[in-house]
């Protein structure tokens, strides 16, 4: 097919020939959303379910998120899995700051999202007060399916298909920066 065809034929004809048209931003967001690599940030019980979500039965690899990176510099999403103690909070903030943009945070479990059953001197009551959170996952601990669903929600958000509580569409992540 000649390059000229791209300009002479209309979109429907091109699609029939197997050529899809999109914007660069959408293409980048689509690629990004299907390779969201999490940083290994298991803290407590939820970390075990986080590990389970990559095993043979649940297989998070289907959504491109199985590659847990030990170095935050290679990771896209920080899954805060478990209760965050006040001693760990500055460490987590630093790990988050070490991650390259664009980056996202999933707060996994009741303890990370709200302090859960540990309302005391030692536990941070909301991870949102330390780092900005994109998706909260309820459960104590959440099932692997719930975590996979959270990753899918995050993919939607990255692709610009997500809506907030007031039914406003959330913007797509820009291709070059956040």
């Amino acid at each position: 097919m000649a390059l000229l065809d791209l300009f002479s034929k209309d979109v429907q004809e091109l699609e029939n020939e197997g050529i899809l048209m999109t914007s660069l931003e959408k293409l980048v967001a689509w690629g990004r959303s299907n390779s969201v690599w999490p940083a290994t940030f298991g803290l407590a019980c939820c970390a075990i379910e986080m590990m389970s979500s990559t095993d043979g039965r649940n297989d998070m690899a289907r959504f491109g998120s199985e590659v847990f990176r030990a170095s935050p510099r290679q990771a896209d999403v920080l899954i805060v899995a478990g209760r965050l103690s006040k001693k760990m909070a500055p460490v987590m903030r630093r790990v988050w700051e070490q991650m390259p943009d664009p980056k996202w945070v999933i707060s996994m479990g009741a303890c990370a999202s709200s302090g859960g059953m540990f309302n005391n001197y030692a536990v941070v009551q909301n991870v949102d007060s330390v780092v900005p959170v994109d998706v909260f996952v309820p459960g104590c601990p959440p099932r692997p399916e719930a975590l996979i669903f959270a990753v899918m929600q995050l993919q939607k958000k990255i692709r610009g298909e997500a809506i907030d509580e007031g039914l406003t569409k959330l913007p797509m992540v820009e291709a070059w920066a956040r």
């Binding site: 302090g115 309302n119 005391n120 001197y121 030692a122 009551q125």
Partner: peptide, 9 residues
């Protein structure tokens, strides 16, 4: 004498 340190909901 150390408080539990609960925060209100």
């Amino acid at each position: 004498d150390f408080p539990l340190g609960e925060s209100p909901t």
